[in-house]
């Protein structure tokens, strides 16, 4: 590690290369500076990224599936989702408060972070790109029924739509409704119906007939 309090007479490696987006170049420049000044280490960044990409919606889906089959667990999940995750051996993440929001026949929840991209990453994995986009972040609060329609969700007029803007330290996770015709499924089969989008609130849980993996198009040379 060399100090960097000298005059800038030497040439740095070019910050941006070719088609690198400006935001990516800015982040890379910041990371290089923070490493150079000893504020963080490259290994810390790599560890954080490895943790993030090791998380997946499968963990959140386990919470939901258990709540569907166990009413007492559902009560505990609604009271304190962080403790409920720990009860299943899941990592609820660094946020001290995690809140589960239950969708019912008359109430539908939709989660957004208008200020940045707050998201229950420990239980859902990295957020989708659209979740971080300005159009989603602005329209999810001002025109949520329009946004849901674009995701293919048509809410009945008598359903109360509750948009939750996660503006601070709390992380929110939606418990979608259990689909009809799933009485015979076990917990693992049920968890396969719980998609990432359904836990953000932009979709319902999958129906049973869509459970098999999507077919790939025929391979042609």
């Amino acid at each position: 590690m060399t100090g960097h309090d000298h005059e800038h007479e030497h040439a740095h490696t070019p910050i941006a290369s070719g088609d690198e987006p400006a935001a990516a170049a800015r982040v890379r420049a910041l990371e290089e500076l923070l490493v150079e000044k000893g504020a963080i280490r490259v290994e810390d960044v790599r560890q954080r990224i490895d943790w993030l990409v090791s998380r997946s919606p499968a963990d959140g889906a386990r919470l939901v599936a258990r709540a569907w089959i166990d009413p007492e667990f559902k009560e505990r999940l609604l009271a304190d989702a962080r403790s409920a995750a720990l009860e299943l051996g899941l990592d609820p993440g660094p946020s001290p408060v995690v809140v589960a929001l239950e969708n019912t026949a008359t109430v539908h929840h939709l989660v957004v972070c208008t200020l940045c991209s707050c998201y229950p990453k420990a239980l859902l994995g990295p957020p989708p790109d659209w979740y971080k986009s300005l159009p989603y972040r602005s329209r999810a609060v001002s025109d949520p029924r329009g946004v849901l329609a674009e995701f293919g969700v048509a809410l009945a007029d008598d359903v109360e739509l509750r948009v939750v803007d996660s503006t601070a330290d709390i992380r929110y996770l939606v418990i979608p409704r259990r689909p009809a015709g799933t009485e015979a499924l076990d917990e693992e089969e049920l968890s396969a119906l719980v998609t990432r989008d359904s836990m953000i609130g932009v979709a319902h849980a999958s129906r049973v007939e869509t459970m098999s993996p999507p077919a790939y198009p025929p391979f042609s040379s």
Partner: peptide, 10 residues
């Protein structure tokens, strides 16, 4: 949207 729709924020 509908009259009963609500918005929550921390």
């Amino acid at each position: 949207g509908r009259g009963a729709d609500r918005l929550y924020a921390d």
